[in-house]
Design a binder for these strands. Structure first.
Lengths: 182, 182
DNA sequence: AACCATACGGAGACTGTCTCCGTTTAGCAA
DNA sequence: TTGCTAAACGGAGACAGTCTCCGTATGGTT
C-alpha cells in the first residue's frame, strides 16, 4: 500500500471512530470523509460499505474483549454472580456505540458477515465463559455459546434502543442467568 | 373528515400493510403513496411520520393481541409450558413484519411514542399473563410485565434480525421462562 | 528524469424524505 | 341548481445520503 493511501486510511478510521461514537452508527459517510479531509471516493475505495468501515473501527475493540474475559474468568464467587457480572461486561462491550448491539448480535453466527472477524472473537471469548461454567457443572446443557450471545445481545439491543441504564438492565440479565444455570 | 379524505386514508393504510409486510418497515413511503394512487403530499398529510402510518396499520392487529391472550389464558398445563407458549405467541405477534420487534420493543414503556397506543395494549395483555402466573405463585416477584415484554422483545429482535426460525428461537424462550419462574 | 500503477477527489446520478403551494373538489347554504 | 369556501389533493422540487465514474495527481521504481 502506498504511503499516502495508508495515511488516508488511518485518518478515516480515526475520524469514523469519533463520529460513530458521537452520532451513532447511522452517521453520514460522506460527512466522515469530509471531516477526514478526503473525497467520498477515497472513503468508499478503502471501505466499500458501512460495515467494512465499522469492522476497521472495531479492530482495537477486539483486544478489549479478550482482556475483559481474562479478567472475568479469575473471578471468585458463585456461578450466578459470575455469569451476571460477565453479562454486564458483555453488554457494555457491545454497546460502545449506538446501534452496536443490534449490528453485532444480528451478525452473530453469520459467517459471511462483513464484521464476522469481530463476532468470531466475541463468540470465542463467550465459549471460554461457557467452558468455565460447564467445568463446574453449573450450566444447563441445551445451550451453547452462540445462544448465550443471542440472549445477552437481545437484552443489549433493548437496552440500547430503549435507553435503559445499567440499573434497569441488571434485573433482565439476572433472569437470563437464572434461566441458564442449574 | 371529508369522504375523499377518508377514502384515501383507508387506501393508504391498506397498501402500507401489504408493502410493510413485503418489504419490511423500511419501505419507501413515496412508493406506498404511488401504489395507493395518491401524491406523497397526501400521504404525509395523513401520516406525518413513518411511525404514524405504522400505528394506523397496526390497528387491526390490536384485536389479535387480545384474542391471543384470551386463548392463552385458558390453557391448562404447567406454568412453564404456559409461559413458553405465551412467549411464542408474543414473539409471533410482534414479528408480523420485519423490523417490528425492534420498533415495538424499543417503544415499550415510552408514553409519548407514536405507537404508544399499541404498546399499551401489548403491555395490558402481558399484565394479564403476569397476574395469572402470580395467582399461582409461579412468577418471581422482582419482575413486572414491562420487563417481561423487554425480555421477550429482545429475543424477538434477535430472531427477526438474525433470521432465526421458531425452532431456533424456542430454546431461548425456555431459558427466559426458567429464569422467570420459581 | 521519466514512467505508470496506484490513489485521489469531486461532480453527479440515484434514491428516499418531506414541504410548499397552486389546483381541485366535497359539502353546504341560498 | 348554483355558487362558495374550507378541506383536500398531488406533484414539483429542495434537501440529504449513498455510491460511482473518471480525469487528475503523485509515490515509488527503473
Amino acid at each position: 500500500m502506498r504511503a499516502d493511501a495508508k495515511r488516508n486510511r488511518d485518518r478515516i478510521v480515526e475520524v469514523a471512530r469519533e463520529v460513530f461514537r458521537e452520532r451513532g452508527y447511522d452517521a453520514s459517510l460522506d460527512d466522515i470523509a469530509k471531516r477526514a479531509g478526503v473525497g467520498p471516493g477515497t472513503l468508499y475505495r478503502h471501505f466499500p460499505s458501512r460495515d467494512a468501515l465499522l469492522d476497521a473501527v472495531m479492530q482495537a475493540w477486539v483486544d478489549r474483549v479478550t482482556d475483559a474475559t481474562d479478567k472475568a474468568l479469575v473471578y471468585e464467587g458463585s456461578p450466578r454472580e459470575f455469569l451476571v457480572s460477565w453479562f454486564e461486561t458483555y453488554v457494555a462491550l457491545i454497546s460502545l456505540h449506538k446501534g452496536g448491539p443490534a449490528k453485532i448480535t444480528s451478525a452473530m453466527g453469520v459467517e459471511d458477515s462483513p464484521i464476522a472477524t469481530k463476532t468470531r472473537v466475541l463468540l470465542t471469548q463467550t465459549q471460554r465463559v461457557v467452558d468455565h461454567l460447564r467445568a463446574q457443572g453449573a450450566l444447563r446443557d441445551d445451550i451453547d455459546a452462540l445462544q448465550l450471545c443471542r440472549l445477552a445481545g437481545g437484552v443489549a439491543v433493548v437496552a440500547d434502543q430503549g435507553g435503559l441504564d445499567a440499573d434497569a438492565t441488571r434485573p433482565l440479565l439476572t433472569v437470563l442467568a437464572d434461566g441458564l444455570l442449574r
